[in-house]
Simulated scan of single mutants.
Amino acid sequence: MRVIAGSAKRLQLKTLDGLDTRPTTDRIKETLFNMIAPEIYDSIFLDLFSGSGGIGIEALSRGAREAVFVENSPKAMSCIKENLKFTRLEHKAVTMTRDVMTALYQLEGEKVFDFIFMDPPYDRGFEKTVLEYLADSQLVYEDTLIIVEASKETDFSYLEELGFHLLKEKVYKTNKHVFMEKAGKEEIC
Results as ranks from 00 to 15, higher is better:
Arg2Asn: 07
Arg2Met: 11
Gly6Met: 09
Ala8Cys: 10
Lys9Ile: 07
Arg10Ile: 10
Arg10Glu: 13
Arg10Ala: 15
Arg10Asp: 14
Lys14Glu: 14
Lys14Gly: 00
Leu16His: 08
Leu16Ser: 05
Thr21Ser: 03
Arg22Phe: 06
Thr25Val: 01
Asp26Val: 07
Asp26Trp: 14
Phe33Ala: 09
Asn34Ser: 15
Asn34Glu: 07
Ile36Phe: 11
Ala37Gly: 01
Glu39Arg: 15
Leu48Asn: 11
Ser50Leu: 04
Ser50Thr: 12
Gly53Trp: 02
Glu58Asn: 08
Ala59Met: 14
Ala59Ser: 14
Leu60Arg: 03
Ser61His: 11
Gly63Cys: 12
Ala67Gly: 07
Val70Lys: 10
Glu71Tyr: 04
Pro74Phe: 08
Lys75Pro: 00
Ala76Gly: 07
Glu82Asn: 12
Leu84Gly: 03
Phe86Gln: 14
Thr87Val: 05
Leu89Tyr: 04
His91Leu: 06
Ala93Gln: 02
Thr97Cys: 15
Arg98Pro: 00
Thr102Ser: 14
Tyr105Met: 13
Glu108Ile: 04
Gly109His: 06
Lys111Asp: 09
Phe113Lys: 03
Asp114Ser: 10
Met118Cys: 05
Asp119Thr: 08
Pro121Arg: 02
Asp123His: 13
Phe126Val: 05
Phe126His: 10
Lys128Phe: 06
Thr129Glu: 14
Val130Gly: 08
Tyr133Glu: 08
Leu134His: 02
Ser137Gly: 12
Ser137Val: 05
Val140Ile: 09
Tyr141Phe: 11
Leu145Arg: 11
Ile146Ser: 04
Val148Asn: 05
Val148Ile: 14
Glu149Gln: 13
Ser157Val: 10
Leu159Gln: 08
Glu160Lys: 09
Gly163Ile: 06
Gly163Ala: 08
Gly163Tyr: 01
Leu166Ala: 02
Lys170His: 13
Lys173Thr: 04
Lys173Gln: 13
Thr174Tyr: 11
His177Glu: 05
Val178Leu: 12
Met180Leu: 12
Gly184Ala: 09
Lys185Asn: 02
Glu186Gln: 07
Cys189Gln: 10
Cys189Gly: 12
